[in-house]
């Protein structure tokens, strides 16, 4: 057991309390909607960052697993035979299988070729969703709403309960990803990112490691898809289109790839930006584009990464030798993918 685990659990609990307290302090339905949106897309971005930030695998097709989670869950619930937790497990399991098959082919390729083949698979899945009309409803999506029958005394038909449920699931997923992020597996993945040849020489099965994290990322993305399906009470082919992948990439770039919670911050900022820009102007593309350019060319990294680097610099300046404990030492490789 890792020493930081208790601390992570504590912080996770605090996060959860804060997430649950916010709608109580500000009882407004819009805030709840907004936070569920941040939770769903934040989780998608976090899962993608397992590939991008941790392992250096730039996937252009991550939304495929978001869509697969949403569709499998939605179809099972509309079938009416199973309860919500069972449908969730089945959706996650099904997506894991899908990610395993696709990943087994994709992780053998490198760099831009990996990106393109993940994109190709995503487009393929998107076109299946579009053409298999009897099952998926084609371009119109799963119609007629997704039923939310109560289970174990929990009624997700009630908006407040739905929100609380999503928050709990979200924090649980974050804790799982945090575990991976700090585990020996996580550090092996960083080594693969920074120097695959070295990892190979050290006897690491690079392909298997990559496949492992690919499947894990797919699983987390499917949970995000389930949350979104629960919220909008439907599943739509746009969930699996490349624009959704693009948005997730933008979120992690906006928030930062090297700070653990960076992607969530990115999701939060993008949703906030999107929310207000959509209200103020119909030229949101123009505004969003300029913001992107400002961040990419101005900050040159995500907001959280920028803040972390700035703070580390300030600390280093004031207390040159005050870096307590091995877990807190930044590995030199950490900054490589950003710089």
């Amino acid at each position: 057991m890792r020493t930081g685990l208790a601390r992570d659990l504590g912080i996770g609990l605090l996060c959860l309390v804060a997430l649950l307290a916010l709608p109580v302090l500000f009882p407004h339905p819009s805030l709840r909607d907004f936070l569920i949106y941040v939770i769903a897309y934040g989780l998608l971005a976090m899962s993608l960052n397992l590939l991008v930030g941790l392992t250096g695998l730039v996937s252009f097709g991550h939304a495929a697993y978001f869509a697969s989670g949403a569709y499998v869950f939605g179809l099972l619930m509309q079938g009416g035979a199973v309860s919500i937790p069972v449908a969730m497990l089945a959706a996650v399991g099904g997506t894991a299988l899908l990610a395993l098959v696709i990943g087994a082919i994709c992780v053998r390729l490198k760099e831009i070729y990996f990106s393109f083949i993940t994109l190709a698979f995503q487009m393929f899945i998107h076109s299946i969703i579009l053409t298999w009309v009897e099952l998926t409803g084609g371009d119109q999506g799963l119609r007629g709403g997704i039923p939310r029958p109560p289970f174990l005394g929990i009624d997700l038909g009630e908006a407040g309960t739905l929100y609380g449920f999503c928050a709990v699931v979200f924090v649980l997923c974050l804790l799982v990803m945090r575990q991976v992020w700090q585990s020996p597996f996580g550090y092996t993945l960083r080594m693969i990112r920074d120097n695959p040849a070295r990892a190979n020489f050290l006897g690491v099965d690079v392909v298997r490691m990559k496949l492992g994290v690919f499947v894990l990322a797919g699983i987390m993305a499917s949970v995000a898809g389930i949350i979104m399906a629960l919220f909008v009470s439907g599943a739509f082919p746009e969930f699996g289109f490349w624009t959704t992948s693009g948005e997730a990439i933008f979120m992690i770039m906006l928030g930062g790839t090297q700070v653990f919670l960076g992607p969530v911050i990115g999701a939060f900022l993008l949703q906030l930006l999107n929310h207000y820009v959509t209200i103020w102007t119909h030229h949101h593309g123009l505004v969003l584009g300029i913001v992107i350019l400002a961040i990419v060319l101005g900050l040159r990294r995500g907001v959280a990464d920028y803040a972390a680097a700035w703070l580390a610099e300030r600390r280093a300046a004031s207390r040159p030798a005050a870096v307590p404990g091995p877990a807190e030492t930044p590995a030199p490789a950490e900054t490589k993918a950003v710089g």
């Binding site: 805030l31 907004f34 653990f260 939060f268 803040a307």
Partner: peptide, 23 residues
Amino acid sequence: MSNGANAIGRRGLLGGAAAGAAI
């Protein structure tokens, strides 16, 4: 990974969320 940076991450998230909530 620096836990200091994590803490900022979380603090930033919560602070930002609270600000967003207020708006």
